[in-house]
C-alpha cells in the first residue's frame, strides 16, 4: 500500500500487479538435476568496456549474459559540508532501473539498493588509496539495467566499479574482481543466474585483488557447511584471477579518460 503520493514522479493507478501466467501454476518439479548450458565451474562470459559515459571521470559497462550494469565514477571532488578529514570518502550508490527485474521495481520502495551498495563499497574500500585524497570524495554510481541473480549482480557491480575507478585514474593497490558461487544439492555452481540461485541452499560472493592475492570482502548467505564455504572461496578466487585478465584487457584497450 502506498502511504503517500509521490509528487515528484508521474504515478499510475494506486495498485497494479505483475501478470499471472497460466502455465506457472502447474509447472515445477521437472527441473533437471545437472546444470544446463555450462559446467558447474563455468562463469558466464563477460563483456566489459570502459569510457562509455563521457560526462564522468571514469566509467565502465559490464554485461554477463543477461546481467547489464553501467557504472560511473565522479571525482575526486571537493567534500562539501563536512569537517576536515585527511582521508578521502568513498561513496557508492546502486540504483536498479524500474524495468531491471522480473517484477517492476517501484523507485525508492526497498532497502535492497542500499545493502548492495554497501557490499560493493566493502569490496572496493581496501583497494582504493583514500589516504592520498584528503578533503575529497569519490562518488561511484552504479545503475543496474537488467539483473539476473542478485549474487552475480553484486559481483558484476564490483568488477565494473573497480574498472571505472581505474579508468578514472584513481590510485589503487590493485584491481578488484569478484565472483559468486552457490551450493546446489552437493555441488558448487559458479556465477549462478536467478533460477540457479533460487535452487541453491546458500550463496557466497567473494571479492579480491588477484594481483596481490588478498581478499577484500566475502559475503555468504544461506546454509553451507564450513567445507563447502571454503571450497566456494577457493573456486571464486580462481575465477577472479581469470576475470582479472578480462578487466586488465578492457582497460588497456580503452581510450584514456579526459
Amino acid at each position: 500500500m502506498q502511504s503517500s503520493i509521490d509528487r515528484r514522479r508521474i504515478t499510475g493507478p494506486e495498485e497494479s500487479f505483475a501478470p499471472v501466467f497460466a502455465q506457472d501454476e502447474q509447472n515445477d518439479e521437472q527441473q533437471p538435476k545437472a546444470r544446463v548450458g555450462r559446467t558447474p565451474r563455468d562463469i558466464r562470459p563477460i563483456f566489459l568496456q570502459t569510457g562509455l559515459i563521457t560526462q564522468a571521470n571514469g566509467s565502465a559497462y559490464i554485461e554477463t549474459e543477461r546481467t547489464k550494469i553501467a557504472c560511473a565514477v565522479y571525482g575526486p571532488r571537493q567534500l562539501k559540508n563536512a569537517p576536515y578529514s585527511d582521508k578521502g570518502k568513498l561513496n557508492v550508490e546502486v540504483k536498479f532501473a524500474p524495468f531491471s527485474c522480473r517484477t517492476r521495481r517501484v523507485p525508492n520502495r526497498d532497502a535492497e539498493d542500499r545493502s548492495i551498495a554497501n557490499l560493493v563499497h566493502q569490496a572496493l574500500l581496501p583497494a582504493v588509496r583514500l589516504e592520498l585524497l584528503p578533503k575529497s570524495s569519490l562518488d561511484v554510481f552504479v545503475t543496474v539495467l537488467e539483473a539476473d541473480g542478485l549474487a552475480g549482480c553484486v559481483a558484476a557491480a564490483s568488477i565494473a566499479a573497480s574498472a571505472a575507478l581505474a579508468h578514472a585514474g584513481v590510485e589503487m593497490f590493485g584491481l578488484v574482481t569478484s565472483c559468486a558461487a552457490t551450493v546446489v544439492e552437493n555441488e558448487v555452481w559458479m556465477d549462478p543466474d536467478e533460477t540457479e540461485q533460487e535452487r541453491g541452499r546458500g550463496t557466497l560472493v567473494l571479492a579480491c585483488m588477484p594481483a596481490l592475492g588478498t581478499v577484500t570482502s566475502a559475503w555468504q548467505a544461506g546454509q553451507m557447511s564450513v567445507a563447502e564455504s571454503l571450497q566456494c572461496m577457493k573456486e571464486c578466487q580462481e575465477r577472479c584471477t581469470d576475470v582479472h585478465f578480462v578487466v586488465a584487457k578492457a582497460l588497456t584497450d580503452s581510450r584514456p579518460a579526459t
Binding site: R8, R9, I10, T11, G12, P13, S16, I53, Q55, A56, A70, C71, A72, Y74, R77, E93, K95, A97, P98, P107, N108, D139, F141, V142, T143
Partner: peptide, 20 residues
C-alpha cells in the same frame, strides 16, 4: 494507464545529485 517517467540519475552527469 500509461505512466511515463524519465530519470536523470547522478550517474549521467556531474550536475545531478543522488536522491529524489
Amino acid at each position: 494507464f500509461l505512466v511515463p517517467n524519465l530519470d536523470l540519475p547522478a550517474i549521467c552527469s556531474p550536475k545531478f545529485k543522488p536522491g529524489a
